[in-house]
Amino acid sequence: MPSIIKYIFSNLLLLVVVASLAQDAEQKPDEKKEKLPPKDFSPTGFRLGTDLIDLIKTETGSTFKGWEVNGDVDFANYYLAVDVGSWAKDLQLGNGNYSNSGNYFRMGVDINLLGKDPDKNMFFFGFRVGHSNFSESLNYTATSSAYPTVPYTVYPSANYVLSNGNVKGGWAEVTTGLRVKVWKGLWMGYTARLKFAPSTKGGVAISPYDMPGYGIVSRAPWWGFNYQMFWRFAWKKDKPVVINK
């Protein structure tokens, strides 16, 4: 199943890139060969938002508590993006329970493929690196299976209460998504994340299981999805794109 998803995802990426290139190619014959004005890389504002899925999960469920704040600043069609968040999970296991709590941030760049959109609507691809700082605890009952050559258990079952106090971890991710201007400064959109290369440091008693911001450490790649609402604070009006006939 993961290989099929990977296959679909790679083909989709290819399709999107080819489609965007084809659009450019379609436009070229109509455009006159005139020198375009240089790109203005000075930022025109910043967006600040939050992930609605985290808030809904926190309010409706009992196993997850978390929030995430997202922000980005434009530099022409490049965006510097920063996400800061926190999550805590409390999971009932088949033979015990697991809980964790921690903070994380992600930082990276998005490239808007709708560079000429006058409203600055975005269909983007991006890259992020993430860092997480968390603690986790695990308690469970272990049993020694019966000794293969005798019909009784050698050691009685044991209860373990284990904790990792300060675990640090990191990962990388590629992102894609949409940001659409809904009304005045209100923006909505989604970000889908393909997270990979997780690493942790500091987990001794427990092999780190769930890293805030990433998810289950033993699974790579791992998916993430945010449905976000933003407010854009603009200090500069964007220049309309002008074409001379």
Partner: peptide
């Protein structure tokens, strides 16, 4: 035409990402 292609691509992307996301969650 461009807007139509873009909208279509975005919708397909969204749909596939949601399907992939949920299949990963339930596995």
């Amino acid at each position: 035409v461009n807007r139509y292609i873009c909208k279509l691509t975005m919708r397909i992307t969204l749909l596939i990402f949601i399907c992939a996301l949920f299949s990963a969650c339930f596995s």
